[in-house]
């Protein structure tokens, strides 16, 4: 399959079952909501080193938030409910509770309950106030700029992490430009985030390493400077490879985001140095979800 001169490799992205939650952070204005969201999802690129993977799903206007203030919607993904819970507590406590003017709400209603204000409330040192409205409970925790309002629980449910595609281009600049295009397109979609810096990852990895302590190491087959030294997957004229990793709350969303991203890349076409779209997998043995590139784009 070739689109606009770009080859779509006949391969698939292999993704994993994860546990995800959605949160809504509001603040006095969008700037501060975004800061809280970014801080909360900073250092959340990969479960390998960060515990969870996360990102801002969307920017919300006043009409779409529980308290009628500007906000952001954040998705967090963990390999298990318990890890997710621990990370959520730490990140909500360190990144949202601390951030001026914010409030924190659950962004989902279905799934298993995940403590939010239930644990954070103790920061109130006994001065916290509980408010039950219908079947929802909220905590009002006194802080120096007023009150930090925080819903007692959010929920978690099964989700998909690790949807991906690789962009192979002639130069580093061309690969980056294409990926930026893809990220901009994916950012408009609901239910997905791209957890790596700016949504893009350059350190594609393989399982294992010559060093015993490392679980993963660089994916030498896609490193252009190792061409000639290792068994490469790159043709001679490929100057750089970048990857976009996509986590989503369901399989469909991840697939749709991959398709949207790849199409955005292909719009640039071979004229802009884009050569090929590939995807990372482990031979299909590790992940439950297989996204075949050609099926997605058919």
């Amino acid at each position: 399959m070739i689109i606009n001169g770009v080859e779509i490799e006949d391969t698939f992205a292999e993704a994993f079952g994860m546990s995800a939650t959605r949160l809504i952070i509001t603040a006095i204005n969008e700037r501060w909501a975004r800061i809280a969201g970014e801080t909360m999802t900073g250092f959340a690129t990969s479960v390998i080193g960060c515990g969870v993977e996360g990102g801002i799903e969307s920017i919300l206007n006043e009409a779409d938030t529980p308290d009628g203030r500007p906000g952001v919607s954040v998705l967090l993904f963990g390999m298990s409910g318990s890890v997710l819970g621990k990370q959520l507590e730490a990140r909500a406590g360190q990144c949202v509770l601390t951030c001026p003017t914010t409030a924190l709400f659950s962004g989902m209603t279905d799934g298993e309950p995940l403590p939010l204000g239930k644990n954070l409330r103790y920061f109130g040192d006994g001065y916290q106030i509980s408010k039950q409205l219908g079947d929802q409970r909220y905590w009002r925790i006194p802080v120096m700029d007023g009150e930090f309002l925080c819903q007692e629980h959010t929920t978690r449910k099964p989700a998909v992490g690790g949807g991906n595609f690789l962009v192979l281009a002639a130069t580093q600049a061309q690969a980056l430009t294409a990926c930026e295009q893809a990220i901009a397109a994916i950012a408009r979609l609901p239910g997905v985030i791209t957890p790596f810096p700016g949504g893009i990852v350059r350190s594609g990895s393989k399982v294992g390493s010559k060093y015993k302590a490392l679980m993963a190491s660089t994916n030498e087959a896609y490193c252009p400077t190792l061409r000639g030294l290792v068994r490469t997957q790159l043709s001679q004229d490929t100057g750089a490879v970048l990857e976009i990793v996509i986590n989503g709350i369901a399989e469909e969303e991840v697939g749709w985001a991959m398709r949207t991203g790849i199409q955005a890349v292909c719009e640039l076409g071979s004229a802009q140095g884009i050569q090929r779209i590939s995807a990372g997998n482990y031979g299909g043995k590790l992940g439950r979800y297989h996204f075949h590139l050609r099926k997605l784009l058919a």
Binding site: P66, D67, G68, R69, K131, L133, G134, R140, G146, E147
Partner: peptide, 26 residues
């Protein structure tokens, strides 16, 4: 004097139960 975010939630709850708002606006 304070502006309390939770009052917005309370207003919404009251509205959904056909009751008047506790305070207008924020």
């Amino acid at each position: 004097g304070h502006q309390l975010t939770f009052l917005t939630l309370l207003n919404q709850y009251l509205e959904s139960h056909s009751a008047p708002w506790a305070f207008p606006g924020n």
